[in-house]
Amino acid sequence: MHYFSQLFHYDHPWSHVVIGMWHKYPNPHCTHVVTIDVVDRSVDPQTGIIRTERILGCKQKAPTWIVRVFGGSEDAFVREVSYVDPKTQTATISSVNLSLSQFATCNEMIRYSPSSDNQRTVFSQTAEIQARMTLWRAAADKLENWLVQRFEQNAQLGKLGFSDVLRTMWETKDRQLACAH
């Protein structure tokens, strides 16, 4: 089992980050995410909490040995369930791989919450990556290591990409507002 975690701030208020969440892809840093579909969504009429279930389709080349051993392809799919709670000002995103899930699981949890001064947004990300125990140990370790490596690369790209998306989005909006006044 491998654990990954990181914590940092986005220099935008919580509401801007959460509105921006739905605009994260496509972005040039994260070209591996090619399709996004909402498969279920509800707005709770009592609490105002929004639950969204999505499937993300990714294209990323896997090493030949992985394709040979596990029969994977460069298409990989992820299930993602998010909650936006206006009351607690929390947005959480939980993800799990659908592809290769008979061999390994990658569970990721992201949380966006306001910083104590409400000017910025705290981003926390944790992931647990584990090959299923039934595999031959050496192959399982190699698979797990490859998944960890790829996860870490993608996490870095996600941060870069989303920072750009937020900057562009809110700079344009602020300029439009400034012009309108």
């Binding site: 707005v43 709770d44 009429p45 009592q46 609490t47 105002g48 009351k87």
Partner: peptide, 10 residues
Amino acid sequence: RSKYSQEKAA
């Protein structure tokens, strides 16, 4: 909160 949520969900 529940009034706003109800209106907005509708």
